[in-house]
Design a protein around this nucleic acid. Structure first.
Lengths: 231, 231
DNA sequence: GTCTATAACGGGATAGAC
DNA sequence: GTCTATCCCGTTATAGAC
């Protein structure tokens, strides 16, 4: 069908450009140039720039979140009534986006960057849409992690999961960038996942931070203030 | 002096708007409205929108990075030839931006969000400027962490520091947002720092991830693929 | 469904009076 | 140093022919 091709070309181009320059930084003309499509076609198929964004977001994020939930189901089923270990829950959360790289082929790197960016997009609209789609997933994973670490207050678990999202989105956002991640091969999703789990799981397993911290923690530079007042 | 007031009002407004809507999402007209300044004044004082960005970036980031280095100096001096503990190095890195909140008063929350955003700004220009200013700091902290964990390959240390930046920037970017961080009081910098150190230090202390991971880690849903091909 | 043409407006930048 | 007025271009969106 020739008509579907146009629509998909628009979505592909939008992915690429939004991933690289953000929503506000991408004009519809740049989009039509990249997609080799007429300007009016965009409005015919989607109605507005905002609608294009919504479509792109769903196409990318929905399958990943579905896969996350499916894996969490599997992990919990395997644990059979018990709380699954933190590492398994983490992997169910982290692996789906990382593995997306392969199933998407050439578009993989772009999509990963897109996902990474969305969580910190300046455009309010983008963040709202993402949060909305993400809410269910975050809730289920927070509960799973809470069961794995019952000694932690619920808000602490939620906060730590939030940190996990921060790391993931930051790394994804730089996919394909100039060697910022030495030794990290974005095409080896399994290795990246293991590495991330290895880094994050200890933090999730850590006990509550004590009011008074480790000995060296009190080390502040004595009156040495060089923070600079306004010039 | 009445002339300096205009320039500073422009910088203040730029901070606020760039932090909220990003570089591309902020127009010079919006800027002049916020600053209550004439459009031509912006060009007189700075020359271009890009130059405004550069000025704002330096005003915010330079003192924080200087403070980071000063604290790292202090921490290393205290260790007296030995490698300072991971926790102390982490705190020297994390505390300065978090404490900035206080010294800046009302502008504090805005500035924090700005810092968080810049690391993931869609605009290439912003990321380049930030990377340039950040390079020296990142290098010194990576070396300090490497000395603290001599058994880790250098690129692994760099990668983990990268993850730390990811967490920090993600949290900062949401400063002042709608209760996304339950239980985290952005005005108590010391508590936030402790909490972050408590979460991140275990990951930095962790040994290299083994090729084959922990038992539960192999848990993948068997042919269950629901990742969704393109529709 | 796809095109051209254009509307209606906002963008950054600048000239020149004061 | 600060203003008004204006240039010129790019922006989203739409009308209407094909």
């Amino acid at each position: 069908m020739a008509t579907a091709a146009t629509k998909d070309r628009i979505l592909d181009a939008a992915e690429t450009l939004f991933a690289s320059h953000g929503f506000a930084g991408t004009s519809l003309r740049a989009l039509t140039r990249e997609a080799d499509v007429n300007l009016a076609a965009v409005h015919y198929h989607f109605g507005s720039k905002e609608a294009v964004l919504r479509a792109v977001l769903h196409r990318i994020i929905d399958p990943i979140n579905a896969e996350r939930l499916a894996r969490l189901d599997a992990v919990e089923a395997r644990a059979g009534g018990h709380a699954p270990p933190v590492e398994a829950v983490l992997e169910a959360f982290l692996a789906p986006p990382l593995e997306r790289m392969h199933t998407l082929g050439a578009r993989g790197a772009v999509v990963l960057r897109f996902i990474g960016r969305t969580h910190n997009e300046p455009a309010q609209l983008v963040r709202d849409l993402v949060r909305e789609q993400f809410q269910v997933v975050a809730g289920r994973f927070a509960r799973a992690l809470g069961r794995a670490r019952p000694s932690l207050p619920r808000h602490e678990v939620a906060w730590r999961l939030h940190c996990v999202v921060g790391v993931l989105s930051f790394l994804l956002a730089q996919t394909g960038a100039q060697a910022v991640l030495p030794g990290l091969d974005p095409r080896d999703a399994a290795a990246t996942t293991r590495r991330l789990v290895g880094f994050l799981a200890p933090g999730l397993r850590a006990p509550m931070t004590p009011g008074r911290a480790a000995p060296a923690l009190a080390a502040r530079p004595r009156p040495h203030r060089r923070m600079g007042t306004r010039r």
